[in-house]
Amino acid sequence: MNIFRFAGDMTHLASVLVLLLKIHTIKSCAGISLKTQELYALVFATRYLDLFTDYISLYNTLMKLIFLGSSFSIVWYIRYHKIVRRSYDKDQDTFRHYFLVLPCLLLALLINEKFTFREVMWTFSLYLEAVAILPQLVLLQRTRNIDNLTGQYVFLLGAYRALYILNWIYRYFTEPHYVHWITWISGLVQTLLYADFFYYYFQSWKNNVKLELPA
């Protein structure tokens, strides 16, 4: 494992921790899209089907369990926790799941490396992860007041994706026969979706003003 991959995983982990901190400690999920969180839960559930069949490393297994556990518990908190759920911006978070899930499923059935259940599910999870942030970005744009933790959460997620791209570039030059178009292209699309957010995030940081996305 190279440094970019490890830094990417740690950034991903940090984003989840920031979100759990907000939900668990402040008892608020204001500005957080339940739709995006549900999509991530679906992403991990379909990608980690190999959890009990293929052992890669203790690190790999632990991280998979953490991402699965945290994504489902975040969904549970926003839906059912009696205090947290009150802060959920239900009326603003209107993105439809199936607009993203159905095209991704269709695309995974058409474009995959091998037409087996596990492989199609794995490909589906890649496509879905690429666009799962969209409901969250739409919600950010609608929310006039983006609090620090929400801004940091989205920033860390975007940073994790950018680091994964560096990881692929590194692996391409250091490992033999390393070509993975499906992963690379969906990963690139995913990272590009953050470009706009990054721009405004750095602007607000540079000018020391509160983060706000233009409508």
Binding site: R5, D50, D54, S57, F67, Y164, H177, Y178, H180, T183
Partner: peptide, 10 residues
């Protein structure tokens, strides 16, 4: 490769 190397990623 038995499993594709990309599958060792998260």
């Amino acid at each position: 490769y038995e499993t594709s190397p990309i599958k060792d990623e998260l």
